[in-house]
């Protein structure tokens, strides 16, 4: 019987002791402990959320970067292509111009050459005229110095001429 009969004394002290333990632990132990645990859990939750956000942002940044890089690449290719085109055009133009210019130059030079030639020709003609007069002069002079032969010549000629 003694074993299963609650005793007033123990109940009284137990109630007192347990109530005090509940009070002390509630006030001085569970409050800080549970608050800290909750804080930590919130912290972890927040950090996870933040890291998730950051990850997302990083992903977005990466995408933006890739987009920009690809755009830049595209642009680069475009620019290069355009540059090539421009260069070709310029070259072509330059070549055409050069050809035209050279043609012009050649033409002009031809004209000049022609004029010069004509000039030279005229000069040469003049010179030849002078020279031939000189030579004729000299020939005439030398021919005329031999009076005997001239007399002969004239006599021969006169002989041939028959007075018919």
């Amino acid at each position: 019987m003694e074993l299963i009969m609650p005793g007033l004394g123990v109940i009284f002290w137990m109630t007192l002791a347990f109530a005090i333990v509940v009070y002390i632990l509630r006030r001085y132990a569970w409050k800080p402990i549970l608050n800290t645990i909750k804080d930590r859990e919130d912290n972890i939750r927040r950090s996870l959320k933040r890291s998730e956000k950051i990850e997302k942002e990083i992903k977005e940044l990466k995408e933006t970067k890739e987009r920009i890089v690809s755009e830049t690449n595209h642009e680069k290719v475009n620019i290069i292509e355009q540059a090539k085109k421009a260069r070709d055009e310029i070259l072509k133009e330059a070549r055409e111009k050069a050809i035209e210019e050279s043609k012009k130059i050649i033409e002009e030079s031809k004209k000049i050459i022609e004029v010069e030639r004509k000039k030279a020709e005229a000069q040469i003609k003049k010179e030849i005229a002078v020279l031939s007069i000189d030579m004729a002069e000299k020939i005439l002079v030398s021919e005329l110095s031999d009076k005997q032969r001239h007399k002969q010549l004239v006599l021969d000629s006169l002989e041939k001429i028959s007075l018919n």
């Binding site: 002390i24 632990l25 569970w30 800080p32 800290t36 804080d39 919130d42």
Partner: peptide, 14 residues
């Protein structure tokens, strides 16, 4: 538990 609670207070949630 008061001792453990003190550890919690000192070390904080970080």
């Amino acid at each position: 538990f008061v001792k453990v609670a003190k550890a919690y207070k000192q070390r904080g949630s970080k």
